[in-house]
């Protein structure tokens, strides 16, 4: 049992790149549509909510509401981009297109495939998050130099959420199942993590839950940085995101082995 689990773990440090490159070739064929798709949603939120609400809300934590929201949207867009890539696109490659099955007949292991998919999903998160950070900087809501610092955080956020979503994809019997994950996990996380309003507005006992939400840690890193403020507890927040990236990987790989290789 243990031996056969070890056999499906990544065979080496670089095998996953073959899977990443396959997805890149596929993405390149429809890059424009894909970029517009992953940017459209957060931008609409940003300008729809931001311009409308900032009139009523005024300043939040010493910044304009639209700036507050923009920094939250950077992390949130990374979350949604990598989650959707995993539960829809990677799930389709795993189940409907049989791409994974074809790869399993080669020198790659299941673990190689999963890592390739996670890094690919994080790449899409990176595109979406960085684009919004850039727009925020252009509009004067963020410090330009902060983008360099924010980019790795966006990538790590992408890995963490792709890794979580991979567990969901591993156990989901069909696409309908993903609605539960979106409405019961992701949407509440968006509101509890300080993306659209400060966490301090939440009841005290709810605030305790926030510490367990990866999105909250991502926002705690991104928001102050984008405003050129000092970031508190950097290593702690990074550590939590790394944990959310690594632990679910081993779980999802075990679940996928049971699903695909029993």
């Amino acid at each position: 049992m243990w031996e056969s689990y070890v056999a499906v773990l990544p065979a080496n440090w670089l095998n996953w790149t073959a899977v990443w490159r396959r997805n890149y070739i596929a993405w390149k064929k429809a890059a424009l549509v894909s970029i517009l798709g992953s940017l459209g949603d957060p931008m609409i939120y940003l300008f729809g909510l931001g311009t409308g609400l900032s009139v009523m809300v005024g300043r939040v934590e010493g910044m304009s509401y639209i700036a507050f929201l923009a920094t939250g949207m950077v992390a949130t867009s990374a979350m949604t981009a990598s989650t959707f890539e995993t539960i829809y696109a990677a799930f389709a490659r795993m189940r409907d297109q049989r791409s994974w099955q074809a790869i399993l007949y080669t020198q790659l292991t299941l673990g190689d495939i999963v890592i390739g998919e996670l890094v690919w999903a994080a790449t899409k998160a990176l595109l979406a998050g960085t684009a919004i950070a850039t727009v925020a900087a252009i509009l004067g809501y963020a410090v330009w130099s902060s983008i360099l610092y924010v980019v790795p955080v966006i990538a790590l956020t992408g890995i963490a959420f792709a890794s979580l979503a991979m567990i969901v994809a591993a156990i989901a019997p069909n696409y309908e199942y993903f609605i539960f994950y979106q409405t019961l996990i992701l949407t509440p996380m968006l509101f509890l993590s300080g993306a659209v309003f400060p966490v301090t507005q939440l009841p005290a006992n709810v605030q305790q839950v926030v510490a367990f939400l990866p999105l909250a840690h991502s926002i705690d890193l991104v928001r102050p940085a984008m405003f050129g403020r000092p970031v508190a507890d950097v290593m702690f927040h990074l550590g939590v995101l790394v944990l959310f990236g690594v632990m679910p990987f081993f779980i999802s790989t075990a679940l996928l082995r049971r699903r695909l290789m029993s």
Binding site: R22, A26, K29, Q97, R98, S99, Q101, A102, Y105
Partner: peptide, 12 residues
């Protein structure tokens, strides 16, 4: 391996 079902990348 040539599997029974078509698992080519159709868009490639």
């Amino acid at each position: 391996v040539v599997p029974q079902f078509d698992d080519l990348d159709q868009e490639f």
